[in-house]
Amino acid sequence: MLTRNMFGLPSMGWRNTLADLENLTRRMELLTDAMLGRPGARLMMPKAFPAINITEDKDKYYVRAELPGMKAEDINLEVFGRNLAITGERKIPSEGENVRYHRREREAGRFSRIVTLPGDVDADSVDAKLVNGLLTVAIAKSAAAKAKQITVKAS
């Protein structure tokens, strides 16, 4: 739902409308969850590889993905507008000619995924790390996207 494919131009007007509509749908779902007493967001089927979790706190969005066996240099991240593009290639090195496989479940291949964040972000303040095969990208919210505390003044 939050994913977007690479086709089309980000500058086209209808894209924002569509994003807003998706945002609205998502918020409706979260509202329904909250009303039914289900905490947080529901588990969704991943739209593309890798599966992604997004969380937020007061200042940042956090995008996480499981990328076991990958090195930092094999992952490419790009932030444009509200979107984060994660591309890369998972390589599984050959174990030699004379090995006999019993099971081969781990897969190698290329991937490319773009996720749209629910609010505006500061593209200059992105921090990414890969620890134990787990990618965490922390993206600062732009000043406009942060929730503001308003003090009520006594007259």
Partner: peptide, 15 residues
């Protein structure tokens, strides 16, 4: 758990 304190879910595709 991956999430730090004070984080709320926006999109969950894996547990």
């Amino acid at each position: 758990p991956l999430e730090g304190p004070g984080e709320t879910d926006v999109l969950v595709e894996f547990e």
